[in-house]
Nucleic acid binder design. Structure first.
Length: 218
DNA sequence: CTCGCGATTCGCT
DNA sequence: GCGAATCGCGAGG
């Protein structure tokens, strides 16, 4: 099954980006709606990378203890979360990986959606090169750290505007999700107490780019 | 200024 | 399943 028929034939469609209004809502709503949509990166040489979003997590404002904005925290690192919707929030984790989020909500609501898994559609070779893996690896963009590396995202991309002229955006195309949509608690947030149990992870069941233990990928 | 730790990944046991 | 890698953030003194 071809997950995105005719996409390779028409980069025109891929170049149309979703407007800021698409991002300006609660993180959970945005997260669900992002599933099955196409994330696009404009490469230096003018080519495009494209991948289908198959796993995301919602992080909600001050009341969510798992979020960087928990308790209303506003610091240099998470400043982008407090800015306008439709921007990219990138931070470094464990000193060696990066995580990429799409800023949601507004105004004054520091919410974001963490990108956790993609199925590569275009530019698989480029992603494989960045990852130091074979192009056939189904896990090229599986997991937030791997995803950021595959797309070449780092701290220099923090604040990038998806709805404006940034080099990354979500294509203005209908979502393609033949797989069932599922939800589960978020991964890696055990420190968040009761908020760790909130089912704010969303994924397409069985898609190749979904991360986590096998039980949480189906 | 010090110090604990993280929205992770990979390799080894 | 466990631990190392690796460093800036952010809370507290």
């Amino acid at each position: 099954m071809d997950p995105a028929p005719a996409l390779t034939a028409s980069s025109r469609a891929l170049r149309r980006r979703l407007p800021r209004a698409f991002y300006a809502r609660g993180a959970c709503s945005l997260a669900r709606d992002l599933l099955g949509r196409i994330l696009v990166v404009g490469e230096e040489a003018g080519g495009l990378l494209a991948a289908r979003i198959v796993e995301v997590e919602a992080y909600r404002g001050p009341g969510d203890r798992a979020a960087h904005s928990a308790g209303g925290r506003r610091t240099p690192r998470n400043e982008t979360m407090w800015g306008e919707a439709g921007r990219l929030y990138v931070y470094r984790i464990y000193g060696l990986h990066h995580c990429a989020n799409l800023v949601a909500a507004r105004p004054g609501r520091p919410e974001a959606v963490l990108l956790r898994g993609l199925d590569p559609l275009l530019g698989r070779e480029r992603m494989a090169l960045r990852r130091g893996r074979p192009p056939g690896d189904p896990a090229l963009a599986r997991g937030p750290g791997n995803l950021a590396r595959a797309l070449g995202l780092d701290l220099g991309d923090d604040g990038l505007d998806l709805a404006g002229g940034g080099r990354l955006w979500v294509a203005d195309l209908p979502p393609h999700r033949p797989e069932p949509r599922r939800r589960s608690p978020r991964i890696g947030v055990d420190y968040a107490g009761e908020d760790a149990l909130r089912p704010w992870r969303f994924y397409l069941a069985g898609a190749a780019g979904v991360s986590g233990p096998a039980a949480l990928r189906r």
